[in-house]
Design a protein around this nucleic acid. Sequence first.
DNA 1: CAGTGGTCTAGACCACAAG
DNA 2: TTGTGGTCTAGACCACTGG
Lengths: 229, 229
Amino acid sequence: MASSWQTVRGEFIRRINEREWPPGEIIPTEAQLCQELSCSRVTVNRALRDLAESGLLDRKRKAGTRVLQNPERKATFSIPVIRLEVEASGGKYGHRLLKLARKVAPTKVLKRMALAPETELLCLHALHMADDKPFALEERWINLAVVPELEKIDFEVTSANEWLVSHAPFSRGDLSLGACSANKSLAARLQCELGLALLEIERSTWKGDESITLVRLVYAPGYRLQTVL
Amino acid sequence: MASSWQTVRGEFIRRINEREWPPGEIIPTEAQLCQELSCSRVTVNRALRDLAESGLLDRKRKAGTRVLQNPERKATFSIPVIRLEVEASGGKYGHRLLKLARKVAPTKVLKRMALAPETELLCLHALHMADDKPFALEERWINLAVVPELEKIDFEVTSANEWLVSHAPFSRGDLSLGACSANKSLAARLQCELGLALLEIERSTWKGDESITLVRLVYAPGYRLQTVL
DNA sequence: CAGTGGTCTAGACCACAAG
DNA sequence: TTGTGGTCTAGACCACTGG
């Protein structure tokens, strides 16, 4: 009587939703469940592990498996290369380099990148365009000590975004998402009205303990991140 | 020579990062890899499946496994109950019901919820507070046809947010994230300056084909969503 | 059609943590 | 200490899909 792990998972979801396994309760052990459902323990394990990953169950060795009180829904956004994001929506992608310089970064930046004061970084500003209209503004700081090869890249052709994604694999990254108002400089670059609310993403990536890059993306007005739960 | 699947995955990540398996290339089959690494095929499968889930590989039956050109990083945010979010950051949670009424929803809302014109819904406005200061404004439409039990709940005590999370499991949900400016009403309710940029989240949840609820959350100025990649 | 990934089974050992 | 989940193995069959 073989059941696929998806079927087994479906049954478990039913039991959780219908309060057969109430929130906070311990559910039967894998051994009991696989006997009851006449399938192998590995199959039960796969189903339970999947539910734990999606935030419905909490599993601990020896302690057993518990139904979480507050099912924690997880939203996952994919962070695409901007060019692909534009092209996927049918737009013509363009890219304009606004600034490229080696300079000592502000304290605030260095702090967030965990670098010593007065460190010189590569500073890069670029505008991503969709159908020749501003799509997003990128302000990036790059730690040349970690990716020295970068200095030879022609950013007029390849966007830093894209080069880094495919050439500087990172082991860790932070991402933070907020809103900001269009100040004079932003409004000019994104060709929008002063004071409009804009979506802002800040991301930093790390290779081990070393910061690779810190980037701030500000999207043109109206942009929304979307996903399915 | 047993290797854990995490070890095997580590080795595969190394090969990808060091271009031993270049982007776009087909990698060896599971059968070849498990022989080379002297472990079972299931172990190799687990490692490769994990890498595919995290967006580094593309797997197709018969076609084999391919290294993706543009590794697609995925950011996952957990969508907590707001009370827990406030309490987790050490604040005192409060909740104020601003409005509660049955009424015919605007066409725009009904359309997004895939309901017939002129349908009557429960409309609820509430303010979530952290340390007695506004934290987020919630504007919610609820389809009473799907959750009739809801009519008896005292929303002065339990927030709709919380009740729905634990009593109305949904099978599907959409989430969209953007920025909006504080208009007069928002500014008054969130006690902030007019025109400030605010983070806005819209979410709709579904039980099968039926829409359960549509909610818009607008956070107080300065709020940021954060996550680790 | 045939090759590749997807999954199942039974049995075994291990690692962690509660008591 | 001991129960529970975590994982590995070998072998088998299935399902999808490219050629």
